[in-house]
Design a protein around this nucleic acid. Sequence first.
DNA 1: GTATTTACTTGTATAATGCAAGTGACTTTA
DNA 2: TAAAGTCACTTGCATTATACAAGTAAATAC
Lengths: 118, 118
Amino acid sequence: MVDHDEQNHERSCCPIACALDHLGDKWTLLLIRDLLLGKKRYQEFLESPEQIATNILANRLKKLEAAGFLTLQTYQKNPVRYEYVLTKKGKDLRQVLQALVEWGKTYYPGTEVFKPYG
Amino acid sequence: MVDHDEQNHERSCCPIACALDHLGDKWTLLLIRDLLLGKKRYQEFLESPEQIATNILANRLKKLEAAGFLTLQTYQKNPVRYEYVLTKKGKDLRQVLQALVEWGKTYYPGTEVFKPYG
DNA sequence: GTATTTACTTGTATAATGCAAGTGACTTTA
DNA sequence: TAAAGTCACTTGCATTATACAAGTAAATAC
């Protein structure tokens, strides 16, 4: 698989379009939310109230790692298992999520911002 | 079709999850971008460089109207045709898009913020 | 040794997306 | 006035993504 050009601009040279090429679905930003709240392990992501399916979770973790949003840290061998931690690129989405939270609180009354995990 | 509860919280009571229930795909926020830049008509949306398919555009315009992000203004009869204009709910996504633009400019070097249309 | 936990993968059904072509009501050009 | 073009879609079909359930492998807990 090859990108449209060497700068990864898949659909256009718009920063929003490029961002949505990686973030534009129903689950990816929710995972980023969980990671920002302090979740690190597969089971923890599964426990979120939105109930992501396991195949989608595994797929998104792979894509997020491939795209440099998070890195894997081994916490166990035999079998090897990882904790997922955000890179700076991932952490810097905090402001985007924050803006979305502010908007969401206004237009979905009754919603509650989640507390940091753990 | 019925919502999970009377407050439209489809997956959870998280404002991010509720927002993504309507905005979480590859096209919806790009349409909001175009509307914020001043585009109003079907053809104008088609002319954006990301090349949205006509069936997806028609579908998204319907969903955005149904969800109160935009309203239709008749500009011609026989046949009746509409301009699409953002409501306050739609316009208030400007800060979200702005945060995404700032993030995108940093992590997709070479991208350029689009200029207002018209 | 059996049950449970953890982190997945696999299979299959449904839904979303992408692409090309078609439609209907005009409007413009020859 | 007849043919071609514009505008805003819809339809059909192929591909891809999402959802749900079940299965797997290597531990650890009882």
